[in-house]
Design a protein around this nucleic acid. Structure first.
Lengths: 339, 339
DNA sequence: GGTCGTTTCGGAAGCGTTTCCGTTCCCGAA
DNA sequence: TTCGGGAACGGAAACGCTTCCGAAACGACC
């Protein structure tokens, strides 16, 4: 049994199976043009010799890399990590390797698109949760690989995401349903994504909900801040300093909502008795802090994106834009206004 | 602007730089035997042509892959994501690509080590925050690649982490300093890491702190649960159901502490007036929820691990075991016991 | 000025596949 | 019996790099 466990290659397999390398290659790849008998023989020999094709050589000679690049910002935030987790799971199940490219900050991002380190290293690129600019699009296409997007603003690529406006409406409608009329909004923007100058779906929801409810807009009740808990806290402080503070706060995300709550608590206000707060996302912490929110299936978005990619890679048809549903989750941070 | 974006290879670069491929290769790889002037010229041309070496060809010919595998569990938890973030940043700065292998659950993990998908695909493997078993060690070594660990139990590899016992002592000593004598511990274990049967440093800290303070151990004040916020909540409920509840709770992690707090709040208890709670980690949410905790520099651990790896890959000397310091962060969830 | 040691550089042989062209073989149709 | 056509298979040229080995250039030293 003590065989020379030297590095054996396809030539060895071919020889042992009594076929040419060409045929061996075809058999090993389940390619067209090999008789069933031959294929079986080759496969058996390969198994016997516990041979596996060299991915490097395979790729060099023209095959696929079996790798996909994932570009993701802010990876230590739950949302992005969860997205990544979902994506990775289906990709790896399909025997694809995931090359991680974390881009934080606008310049980091520029750098990435400028250098395109993924070039000729992957079969596809998945852009997680950020908009792709014109110039960036061009460079991406230059790579000549499949591209898809997930979890974010609709890129011009196949993508999966939630409907932000609907999610926002679910939150606002809940507040309105409870009887609130003086509702503030803490809008959060990602400072690293300047493209997002146009009003977001989550903001639109605020305006349309008020309009539909016949409540006049009070500009002072809208505060826009950079994304983040601390920013949420600051925003809440600003809101609180007004002559007629809101009875409810609609925050664009759970983290921002948590920040707002901290300010509220420190100010001695009770939640939801004195003021209601609602977020969006259903961050795991939301459950631990009894925060009412609108849940979006984050991991699932990553998974869907992964499956989409798989389909495309296989040359199959696939949906182009998938929208996954969101859902109101009522917890302890919202209640009817006092009175 | 419409340049032919054809695939260019090293031969093109060499030609453009007026050198042979051999020299170009050496220059691109920062190899020995190229004059500084030549090297610069080659690099400039490469940049100009936005050329990157084909990892496949490079590897095939005997070079390095320029890739490192990162094995990480629970990626959507802040701790792991932050670790990864730090690691990735230094690795990418060094032009190494990161292959992400997410292993969740014990079987997933076994599967990984059994198949070792990273085989021949990477130059090194970084194991993030989980202990490596005997058998796994063997298989890892079989790969013949560099291996390091970060953020976790000391593996038999170069690694960086915190001193769990010290961290625990910082938390316990704070509670004791405030005057608490009836202190409970909610110990958290990772259900996916059965290796961790031996008492952890965080637990040891509890016992030694009590001993040093001359406080007799009350077994009923120790609850061990699986890691997680909900589990923390359950543990707290158990603690609360006792005839003589604690005046302070030491939780192994911030998430667990938050869970405990939820139970406390729901029970109508006020924090820190009625009961103090302290966690470990300084999860971003801790700041938002005014949770006193012991901070560990997570991102930094990832970065240090990355630099260690870089050193090793370069064949330089490097420290074998790095311990980064932790620090007590006093916020609003702890106070002296009610007198 | 000649010899020897360094340093820098080029030629070319692989590395292990895939795939483009053929070639052979077999079978049914004419 | 011959011929055409398709299936099965083989030869060999890429694929893009690294590296061994030797050549050339350049000083330094005697």
């Amino acid at each position: 049994m003590a065989q020379s466990s030297q590095k054996i290659n396809m030539a060895d397999v071919a020889r042992a199976a009594g076929v040419s390398m060409a045929t061996a290659s075809r058999a090993l790849n389940n390619d067209y043009g090999v008789s069933e008998a031959t294929r079986r023989r080759v496969l058996a020999v390969a198994e016997e010799l516990s041979y596996v094709v060299s991915p490097e050589a395979s790729r060099l000679a023209g095959g696929a890399t079996g790798r996909v690049a994932v570009v993701v910002p802010h990876i230590s935030r739950w949302f992005f990590a969860a997205l990544l987790e979902g994506l990775e799971s289906v990709l790896r199940a399909a025997d694809l390797d995931v090359l991680l490219y974390h881009v934080d900050g606008i310049e980091d991002r520029h750098d990435f698109f400028h250098r395109l380190p993924a070039r000729r290293k992957v079969d596809a690129v998945v852009v997680l949760a950020f908009p792709v600019g014109e110039e960036e699009q061009r460079r991406l296409e230059l790579m000549g690989v499949t591209i898809i997007a997930a979890g974010g603003q609709h890129a011009p690529y196949p993508n999966v995401s939630i409907d932000d406006e609907t999610a926002g409406r679910q939150a606002m409608d809940h507040l309105l349903f409870l009887g609130h009329r003086r509702i503030a909004m803490i809008a959060a923007v990602d400072p690293d994504q300047p493209d997002e100058v146009q009003p977001s779906g989550r903001s639109n929801a605020y305006y349309s909900a008020l309009r539909d409810a016949g409540i006049p807009l009070d500009e002072r009740l809208v505060v826009t801040v950079d994304w983040g808990g601390d920013q949420g806290a600051d925003a809440m402080a600003k809101l609180l300093s007004q002559p007629e503070p809101p009875t409810a706060v609609y925050a664009h995300s759970d983290e921002v909502a948590l920040g707002a709550i901290r300010t509220l608590r420190r100010a001695g206000l009770r939640i939801p008795d004195d003021i209601s707060v609602i977020g969006i996302d259903d961050h795991p912490v939301a459950e631990l802090t009894d925060l009412t929110t609108v849940r979006q299936p984050v991991r699932e978005q990553g998974e869907r994106a992964g499956r989409m990619l798989l389909n495309i890679l296989r040359g199959e048809e696939t949906e182009h834009g998938v929208v996954v549903p969101t859902q109101l989750v009522i917890r302890g941070s919202t209640a009817p206004p006092r009175g």
